[in-house]
Design a protein around this nucleic acid. Structure first.
Lengths: 208, 208
DNA sequence: AATTGTGAACCTCTTCACAGCT
DNA sequence: AGCTGTGAAGAGGTTCACAATT
């Protein structure tokens, strides 16, 4: 299969969200120009992104909002529910358990792992906190496909190494370190400090 | 000034973190090859990124860890403390108040804003929750330079519009919407669902 | 001998511009 | 007439490869 840029995939997510919003407003048809304008892209970019996966519009008319939403959902694999494990039940971890957006997009946290004996056994929103030693067994039982890494930076690599051994191939990493994985494993980073530092750079360089 | 790619800036943040780690291990000198290897980049990339800002190494020897760390810190504007406001005191907001990494990188949350009267007046880690109506006054008093947006998606744009009116020019946005701003204002997005959807795409497309 | 700093080559992503449908 | 879909052109970012330096 042709390789698709990660920037294209991330824009598809944005289009998906936009189309859902339009659908809630009972708007039936939309042009690439409108989708672009809402999100600050160009219309050519929108059409090009979609063209990698097929021809979903009608020339002269635009796109059917619901149909395009569903097509993008299919591309992104959002038709199914994904079983997610949360690793690390500190501040970030606790916030993520309550983050509504995950559930609405079909990402269901099915298990929580932590090493702290005081936390093990706790139940939040019906989700049980397990000791990390049991992660492989629980991951298999719950058919976990994605792990969210919310452990301290110096533990992140070993946690991921261990979970790769349990067969988990996709990670959302909140720890501020680069995690090394084999080719067939994917890590996405959510690094809040890096974004803040980009703002710091901007404010420092771009004084009025 | 020459325009620098945002990817370069984000890698500089990574180098900065790497150099701090090396410094803690009392390592005095490092090569571009080593920095690259730790983070999964190429050595040419590391040298090119640095070259936009100056010549910090010694040919044949490499870079002095502490000196390079300080130079990158200077580039990113990390020499000073940044005063940050947190807008929205829900799940995400509460987690961010306790997020240690912000403080260690010099980003100090000085004020919290929320509309909920039950939350207004609350004090966390010595930080007071103010009503959003008072945001301009408090932002001025606390010399706020950066705002973290942790409000629901449908409120994010109006919150930012209002804060731009108070003179805040840099935003870290956790709401899953595209925020429109004038040229001289910068928004960085921290969109966890987009990253998860990229993992969903990967798992769907790249089956073994 | 080792490693930097950098122009040039290369590759990837974005935008243009227009033929082709509706 | 209006808007999509797309090859080609353009812009931007990354890697190469080597002269310069310690």
């Amino acid at each position: 299969m042709k390789k698709i840029a990660t920037s294209t995939i991330s824009r598809l997510s944005t289009y998906y969200r936009t189309l859902n919003t339009l659908l809630n407003k009972n708007i039936a048809t939309v042009s690439s120009e409108e989708i672009a304008h809402i999100n600050g892209f160009t219309s050519a970019q929108v059409r090009k992104d979609l063209s990698f996966f097929g021809a979903f519009g009608k020339r002269g008319l635009g796109y059917n909002v619901e149909k395009l939403r569903d097509e993008i959902g299919k591309i992104l694999g959002l038709g199914k529910k994904w079983n997610v494990a949360l690793v690390g039940f500190g501040n970030i971890g606790r916030a993520l358990v309550d983050y509504k957006e995950f559930k609405t997009q079909g990402f269901l946290i099915k298990a929580i792992f932590d090493n702290n004996p005081q936390k093990v056994g706790e139940v939040i929103n019906g989700i049980k906190v397990h000791h990390f030693d049991d992660s492989c067994k629980v991951a298999a039982d719950e058919k976990i496909e994605i792990a969210i890494i919310a452990v301290p930076a110096d533990k992140a690599q070993q946690v991921v190494d261990s979970l790769i051994g349990c067969g988990i191939k996709a990670y959302l990493n909140f720890a501020p370190v680069t995690i090394k994985t084999p080719e067939n494993v994917r890590v996405k980073n959510e690094n809040m400090s890096i974004e803040l530092e980009a703002l710091s750079y901007f404010l420092t360089r771009c004084k009025p």
